[in-house]
C-alpha cells in the first residue's frame, strides 16, 4: 500500500518537531528515515502509525485518508526500539495477541491462530522458543518476536522505530540482512527510522534524510551518498574532511583568501590520496599523527601543514605497505573527488 504524507507539521509546545513534511512512499518500498536525534523522524513515524496526531497535514494510505482513523483501525505493524513485548505472555501468546483481540466475526479459529503463530515463529527462527517468556530471550530474539507479532495481523504497512538500536553490532548486522530478505519476500511497504547511516545505506531502497524537522534529501542510497545536496547530508552520511578554499573562475582552489568567494570542499576519507612526492598543485603537505589498522582498511590521521586542521584518510592495506608510512612523517595529501559548498550559516 502506498503512503502519501502531505504538509504534515507537528509542534510539541514551542518545539517544532516537524515542518511541512511532504513524502510519497510507493507500494512495497523499504524506506529509511535517517537523521540525528531530534530531527523529527520518530515523530513522523508515530504520526503515520496514529500514535501521535499531526497539527496539520494529511496522511493517505493508498487513496484512503488516514488522518482521523484511530491507531487500532489503521492496520499497521509497528516495531519498537525496546521491543515492547508483553512480559507476562509467552512468545507464542505475544505473536497471537493481534489475532486473539479481534472481534468474534473476524477472529480466525484457535487452530488457525496456532498454525499462523507456528508459521511466523519458524519465519523468525524461534520455533523452539514458543513457550518461553520474553525475559528469557536475548535482545535480538526479542526483536524477532516483536517483528513476528507485528506481521501476524498481516499489516499493509510495517513501521519500525530504530528496530536494531538496542542491539550489539553483530546481531544488528544480522537482523538488518534478515529484514532486507524478509522485505524482498513479502513486499510490505516498510518505513524504518534509524540514526545509523550505515544501516540506512545497507537496507533501504530509498533514504529520507531529515534534520531539524525538515527533509533534507530524498534519494536512493547511492544518490544520497554520492551526491549529497547539502553539507549536512554529506556530513551525516559518513566521515568527511573539509578543505577550506576559494572559488577562482568557477573552480575550487585550496586555501582561502580575501579576494575570492570562500568555498568549502568536502572529501570522504577514502577519496583522500596520500603521496610521498608532491604530484599536483593542489596537494597539501601534512604530517601523519596516527595510524590505525581496522581489518582491511588503514585509517591515517593527519595534520594539515598550512592550517593545522586534522584530516582523515583511508587506504587499502596494499597501498599502506607500498607507502610504508610511519607516524611523524611528512607526506602530501590530495583530494581525489570533492564536493564544493559555499558556506552560508552552516559550519562544521
Amino acid at each position: 500500500m502506498s503512503i502519501q504524507i502531505k504538509d504534515v507539521s507537528k509542534a510539541f509546545g514551542s518545539f517544532q518537531a516537524l515542518q511541512d513534511i511532504n513524502l510519497d512512499i510507493e507500494t512495497g518500498e523499504l524506506v529509511a528515515l535517517l537523521g540525528p536525534s531530534g530531527s523529527g523522524k520518530t515523530s513522523l513515524l508515530r504520526i503515520i502509525a496514529g500514535l501521535e496526531a499531526s497539527d496539520n497535514g494529511v496522511i493517505l494510505f493508498g487513496d484512503e485518508e488516514m488522518t482521523h482513523i484511530r491507531t487500532t483501525e489503521r492496520k499497521v505493524g509497528f516495531v519498537f526500539q525496546h521491543y515492547a513485548l508483553f512480559k507476562h505472555m509467552t512468545v507464542a501468546d505475544n505473536v497471537a495477541y493481534g489475532l486473539k483481540v479481534r472481534s468474534k466475526k473476524e477472529r480466525p479459529s484457535k487452530k488457525e491462530i496456532k498454525e499462523k503463530v507456528k508459521e511466523l515463529l519458524s519465519l523468525v527462527k524461534l520455533d523452539a522458543f514458543a513457550d518461553r517468556y520474553p525475559s528469557q530471550l536475548s535482545g535480538g530474539q526479542r526483536q524477532r518476536v516483536a517483528l513476528a507479532r507485528a506481521l501476524a495481523v498481516e499489516p499493509k504497512v510495517l513501521l519500525l522505530d530504530e528496530p536494531f538500536g538496542a542491539l550489539d553490532a553483530k546481531v544488528r548486522k544480522e537482523l538488518r540482512r534478515w529484514l532486507r530478505r524478509l522485505h524482498d519476500d513479502f513486499h510490505i511497504t516498510s518505513i524504518f527510522v534509524t540514526h545509523d547511516q550505515e544501516e540506512a545505506l545497507d537496507v533501504a531502497d530509498r533514504i529520507v534524510v531529515m534534520n531539524e524537522g525538515k527533509i533534507e534529501q530524498i534519494g536512493s542510497p547511492e544518490e544520497v551518498y554520492e551526491h549529497p545536496n547539502s553539507p549536512f547530508v554529506y556530513d551525516f552520511l559518513g566521515n568527511v574532511n573539509v578543505f577550506h578554499g576559494r572559488l577562482e573562475d568557477g573552480t575550487w582552489r585550496n586555501g582561502a583568501d580575501s579576494l575570492h568567494q570562500q568555498a568549502l570542499a568536502y572529501v570522504r576519507p577514502h577519496d583522500v590520496a596520500i603521496e610521498r612526492q608532491k604530484s599536483a598543485e593542489d596537494a597539501v603537505q601534512a604530517e601523519i599523527v596516527h595510524i590505525h589498522v581496522v581489518g582491511r582498511t588503514v585509517h591515517v590521521e593527519l595534520k594539515q601543514g598550512d592550517t593545522d586542521r586534522f584530516l582523515e584518510a583511508e587506504l587499502t592495506k596494499d597501498r599502506y605497505r607500498e607507502l610504508d608510512l610511519k607516524p611523524g612523517e611528512t607526506v602530501f595529501v590530495r583530494p581525489n573527488q570533492l564536493k564544493v559548498f559555499i558556506p552560508e550559516d552552516y559550519s562544521i
Binding site: 502509525a49 500514535l51 491507531t71 487500532t72 483501525e73 489503521r74 492496520k75 499497521v76 505493524g77 509497528f78 519498537f80 515492547a84 513485548l85 508483553f86 495477541y97 493481534g98 483481540v101 479481534r102 507479532r149 507485528a150 501476524a152 495481523v153
Partner: peptide, 8 residues
C-alpha cells in the same frame, strides 16, 4: 501502544 496498534 503496541497493544493498540495490534487492534486491541
Amino acid at each position: 501502544e503496541a497493544s493498540a496498534i495490534l487492534g486491541a
